[in-house]
Computed example of a mutant assay.
Amino acid sequence: MIRRRVVVSGAVQGVFFRDTCRRTADARDVAGWVRNLPDGTVEAVFEGEPERVRELVEWAHQGPATALVDAVSVTEEAPEGLRGFEIRPTPGGF
């Protein structure tokens, strides 16, 4: 199991990025979460089998068809044993 945190910048909010990310993760049996950040980026955590997590990180570089991704920051983290994939609220309640 591996875990990666990604922060995606560009035109990535208001384009169904989070819902598409959740559906893509569910289809690949990857656990984690995704949320919008107040600065206009999207943050996600992917946990699971290495190849499947790599697929999600690769997907984040493009996102859904309506997104325009400018950059993706990827950070390796220790797995926490997450189960399922959820859309989390934006910090600060936005």
Rank of each mutant, 00 (worst) to 15 (best):
T24C: 01
M1V: 10
V7W: 01
A44G: 07
T24M: 08
M1N: 05
D26Y: 00
P64M: 14
W33Q: 10
G40L: 06
L68P: 00
G92I: 15
R18D: 09
V30R: 04
T75L: 14
A27R: 04
P64Q: 12
D29V: 09
M1S: 12
G40D: 02
R35I: 14
R83L: 02
A60L: 01
P89T: 14
A60I: 00
V53Q: 07
Q13E: 14
A60G: 00
G32E: 10
R5G: 03
E55C: 03
E47N: 10
L56S: 06
L37S: 04
P38R: 12
E47M: 08
E43F: 13
E80C: 06
V45A: 15
Q13I: 09
H61S: 05
C21K: 00
A11S: 11
R4V: 08
G48H: 05
D70W: 02
F17E: 12
T24N: 08
T66D: 12
D29C: 03
R52Q: 14
A78L: 14
A11R: 13
V12A: 12
E51M: 11
V7A: 01
L82M: 13
T75P: 01
T20V: 09
A11D: 05
V42L: 05
D39Q: 03
P38K: 09
V74D: 06
A27I: 02
R22H: 01
E55H: 07
T41C: 06
R23V: 06
G40Y: 02
R22L: 13
W33T: 10
D29L: 12
G48L: 05
V72P: 00
E51H: 12
D39E: 05
E43W: 10
A44Q: 02
E47F: 10
F94W: 13
D39R: 04
G81Y: 07
G10P: 02
E43I: 13
E51F: 11
G40E: 03
G10I: 01
G32W: 10
Q62Y: 12
A31P: 01
L56G: 04
E47R: 09
A71P: 00
V30H: 04
F46R: 06
R4A: 08
G40A: 06
S73Y: 01
T75W: 03
A78E: 15
R28L: 14
A44M: 11
E58P: 00
P64V: 12
A65Y: 11
I2W: 14
G84D: 04
V42R: 03
A67K: 03
E43N: 09
E49D: 12
T75E: 13
V12C: 08
E76M: 10
E49K: 02
R23F: 01
A67Y: 02
D26Q: 08
A60Y: 01
R88A: 12
G81D: 08
D29Q: 13
V53W: 09
E55V: 09
G84Y: 03
L82T: 06
R35Q: 14
G92M: 14
R88Q: 13
A31F: 02
P89M: 12
A60P: 00
A25L: 04
A44F: 06
D19Q: 13
I2F: 11
Q13C: 09
P89A: 15
R28N: 11
C21D: 00
V30K: 03
G10R: 04
V6C: 08
V30L: 06
G14W: 01
V74Q: 04
E51G: 13
T66Y: 06
W33F: 08
E77Y: 15
V6P: 00
N36T: 04
Q62I: 05
E76K: 14
V42S: 05
R54L: 09
V69W: 01
V42C: 05
G14D: 08
